Amino acid sequence: MSDRTDAATLPEALRPAIEKYRDEADETRRIPAQLLDQLRAAGAFRLNAPRESGGFELPLASVLELYERLGRIDGPVAWVIWNLNWGFSAAFLPESGFARIGPDALIANSGQPGRLVHDGADYRLSGAWRIVSGVESADWVALAAIVFDGDRPKLTDAGPDVRIVWVPRSAVTVRDTWDVVGMRGTNSDTVVAEDLAVPADLVVPFAVPPRIDRPAYRVPLVHLVFPGCAAVVLGVARAAVDEVTALAGRKVGMDGVPLAEQPRLQAALGRATAEVGAARALLFECARGLDRAAEAGAPATDAQRGELRGAISYAAETARSVLTAMYEAGSSDPLYASSRLGRIFRDGMAAAQHANMSAAHYELAGRTRLGLPPNALIV
């Protein structure tokens, strides 16, 4: 499973199964067990796991490319694969903590902060985390939490003391709150923990240095997570272009002229292809910059990290533009519940709402471009 050539073939190898079950996933609002088994067996959840744990240990840019290609097949499935790809936990948790989880666990995550308090040498966790994608498919959950000292957050030089906390899926309550019109198949429900005891070796700060000091894990932990959603949404945007291209070959406009022969549609497809291609190139190049720094053993600079955050926001902005243009180009087709283009549009627009891709992050990109401190805990 550690052969990178095999990893590169995953999207096409999994395409038949993904296409077979994507309607069922939309109806049931979760990945069907049969599809989950095939994804798991193929190693789709071990893209960034260490080689000694049976993972591919891919660099960030390679992982993002796979997410994007999977998103082009189906956004919800790619989204769950992204959110459950926490095999890098082995590189950041203490050895004893990772032994509790094991190399085969699927780990869903949420960046919404809960409350964490010391309980002797260990901790107690409380909170509600909304939109935890793929949680019913997960064995564990990794949840962000702020350490509190009494009624006040504990502060560090960088701001509140934010930690990542790993807990078994069986130890939390999952509330069925995912009643939506886009990305339905992601099972993005709410996780609740009430004064849950957590061993100290399952709690690490966001800025924890890797225990496994190799290039794949020298990239800041937060950037092993954040850009994946942007790659998926760009894949969904490309899927919309693909669908309109296919539609244009069989649909005739009100004037009796095939859509494929209409200059307006030709221009829309040309512009959309260029826009999504530019956003992909920017996102991947920023990721490769972090990979190159990691390979050289150098820390990522604030400017590099800020550029990546800007590229993530730009991906969402571009995807919305492309999805809207393709919806319009599809004429009446996307109005129907049976329309593949309509579902792609709904999935893509829902995905682009993720907080990781907010336009607010352009401020981080601008501050670091100006040489100013990021003015944020996570950049």
Rank of each mutant, 00 (worst) to 15 (best):
M1E: 10
T5H: 06
T9L: 15
T9I: 12
L10A: 02
A13N: 07
L14N: 08
R15L: 14
P16Y: 04
D23M: 04
E24Y: 05
T28F: 11
R29Q: 12
Q38F: 11
G43R: 04
G43V: 01
R46F: 00
G55S: 04
E57K: 04
L60Y: 07
E68H: 08
R72A: 13
I73H: 04
D74M: 05
V77C: 12
W79S: 12
F88T: 10
A90C: 04
D104A: 15
L106R: 14
L116H: 11
W129C: 13
V135L: 08
S137D: 05
A142L: 02
L143D: 13
A145F: 09
F148H: 12
T156A: 01
P160R: 05
V165Y: 10
A171H: 08
T186R: 04
T186G: 07
N187C: 15
S188F: 05
V192S: 03
V198P: 02
A200S: 15
A200K: 15
L221G: 14
V225M: 10
G228M: 00
L234R: 14
R238C: 06
T245L: 09
A248W: 02
A268C: 15
V276K: 15
A278S: 10
R280L: 00
A281H: 13
L282F: 10
D291F: 04
G297P: 00
A298E: 13
A316V: 00
R320M: 07
M326P: 15
Y327S: 10
E328A: 11
L335Y: 13
G342W: 04
D347P: 04
A351G: 14
Y362C: 02
Y362N: 08
T368R: 09
